[in-house]
Nucleic acid binder design. Structure first.
Lengths: 235, 235
DNA sequence: CAAATAGTGTCTTTAAGACAGTATAGT
DNA sequence: ACTATACTGTCTTAAAGACACTATTTG
C-alpha cells in the first residue's frame, strides 16, 4: 500500500531522519547498569551508543520500533517500556536534520539472555555512575541517558516501578533493597511495608520460602493485571 | 549545508513524515479552552485540528518548530511550552508513515492577540468538556488533546503551573480560583496559602491593589527566575 | 455599621518516622 | 540457647484539614 500523496507533504529529500533510541536498565552486581552497543559505522564509528535505529516502513508504531531494536540488538523482550521524550534538531546528526524518540526499558537481570542479539557482539552492560557511564557516548546519547536515569530515579520515589527489576517471585526485603539501591538511602522497614501494603499490588506465592540461617521471608509476585501504581506520598 | 550522507540512512522515499502539534490552552469565560484550526487541505479537509505542521529544514529544533507553528497559525508567543510525547505509526496519516511530536502550551487570556496569525482566519478557541472538545478532530488529535488535558490537570495537583494562565500580576484569591477551576473542587484558603508560601516563588508587587466593596487583595508576581515548582505534597 | 472578601490563627484529626518487641528459621 | 533476619505493633512527633476569628475596604 503506497501513499496517495494527497496533501502538500515535504519533498522526500527535505524530510528529517527519524530514529528510536532505548535506554534499557537492569540491576546487576548491586548496581544499576545500562546496555550500550558499539557503533560499527560512521558517524561516531567505534563509539558506544544507546541501542537504536531508524524507523523502517515495516514498523507498526514508534513503540513497536523500540521493541524491534531491543530484540535485534540485544535479544531482549522487555516487560517494561516507557516513552521518555523526543530530541531533535538540525545539528545532532551530521547526516542532516534528525530526531529521535527515546524510550526507557527495565528488565530483571535473570531475564537477560546469556548470548546477546544477532547483530550485537559489541553490546555490553555498563554501570551507571551518577547519571552517566564511563565511555563517551555517540550523538547526544549522554544527555538522553541522563534524562532516562532521572526519570527512573524520580519514579522510584512514588511508584512501584522497581518491581520490574526483580524476578517474578521476590521477598519484601528484596524489594526494599532495590528501592534503597536506586534511592541511595536507607528506608524504614515498617514504613516501607505500610506503603507497599496500602497500594495492594502484590499477592503472596504460597508454599514457597527462602532459606538462610534465620527466619525465611514470604515470597510475593505482582498481581496478574498489575500496572505501575502510584503512591499517595513518596516512598 | 547539505548532508554528507556517510552512514546507511534510509532512502528519502522511505523516511516517515515528521510533524509537531501543539495543544495550547487558556482560561477564558471561566473555562479551559484549546485553540483549534480548521484544515484547508486534505487529508481531513474541513476538520478541526491542533495547530501543527511539518518539520522544515530551517527549523532549529523540535521545540523551535513548535514555537514557529504557534506564531504562524495563531500569532502567539507562548510563555510556557512543554513536550507532551510522540505519536507515530504506519496508519495515522493516509499519506504514509507519520510521527508527530506533541507539545502543550499555556497562555494567559490577556496575552492573546486580538487578531490571529496570518495563515489562520480559521483558528478559534474551543471550551474543554471533560477531556475533549465539541468538534471531531482530524487524525489522532482527539487522543493527543486528551493526553494534554490529563497532563495539565495532573500537574496542577502538585506544581505551580497554573500561574501561566494568569496575567503577570494577580492576587492569591485569583490564583486559588484558577486551581479550583482546573481541579473542579474547592480548596481550603488557609491550606492553599500555606502551600504557596512554602515554595516561595511569588513576590508582592508594591503599591498596588484591587478594589471592590471589600478589603482589597495584595498583588503578586512570579519571581524573575521562576520555573515550575513542585510541591512536597498535593495542593 | 453592615456587607463582603482578604488574610491569619488555632484546634482537631490523621499520618509519618522511630524504634522496640515478637516470630521463626539454622547452628 | 544463640544468632540473624522477618515481620508487627506502639508511641512520639509533625503535618494536614476544618473552621473560626480578625482586617480592611465601600456604600
Amino acid at each position: 500500500m503506497k501513499q496517495p500523496q494527497t496533501g502538500p507533504v515535504p519533498a522526500p529529500a527535505e524530510r528529517p531522519l527519524l530514529t528510536v533510541d532505548v535506554t534499557i536498565l537492569t540491576l546487576r552486581d548491586d548496581s544499576l547498569q545500562a546496555l550500550l552497543v558499539r557503533r560499527a559505522e560512521p558517524p561516531h564509528a567505534g563509539r558506544w551508543a544507546l541501542p537504536g535505529g531508524f524507523i523502517r516502513p515495516d514498523d507498526i508504531s514508534l513503540e513497536g520500533a523500540a521493541r524491534r531494536v531491543l530484540l535485534d540488538k540485544a535479544g531482549i523482550e522487555t516487560p517494561y517500556l516507557e516513552q521518555l521524550g523526543s530530541y531533535g534538531d538540525a545539528k545532532r546528526d551530521p547526516r542532516g536534520w534528525s530526531a529521535t524518540v527515546a524510550y526507557v526499558a527495565l528488565i530483571a537481570s535473570d531475564r537477560l539472555e546469556p548470548r546477546h542479539g544477532r547483530n550485537a557482539d559489541a553490546a555490553s552492560w555498563w554501570p551507571i555512575v551518577g547519571t552517566s557511564v564511563a565511555p563517551t557516548l555517540a550523538f547526544d546519547h549522554a544527555r538522553i541517558l541522563a534524562a532516562a536515569i532521572g526519570r527512573v530515579r524520580a519514579k522510584v520515589e512514588y511508584t512501584t516501578l522497581p518491581v520490574h527489576l526483580l524476578p517474578a517471585k521476590f521477598t519484601l526485603p528484596d524489594l526494599q533493597r532495590v528501592y534503597e539501591q536506586l534511592l541511595d538511602r536507607k528506608l524504614d522497614k515498617s514504613a516501607f511495608r505500610k506503603r507497599i501494603a496500602e497500594v495492594d499490588f502484590l499477592e503472596p506465592v504460597e508454599g514457597e520460602r527462602r532459606a538462610a540461617s534465620n527466619r525465611p521471608a514470604q515470597l510475593w509476585r505482582v498481581k496478574p493485571d498489575h500496572r505501575t501504581v502510584f503512591f499517595d506520598r513518596t516512598i
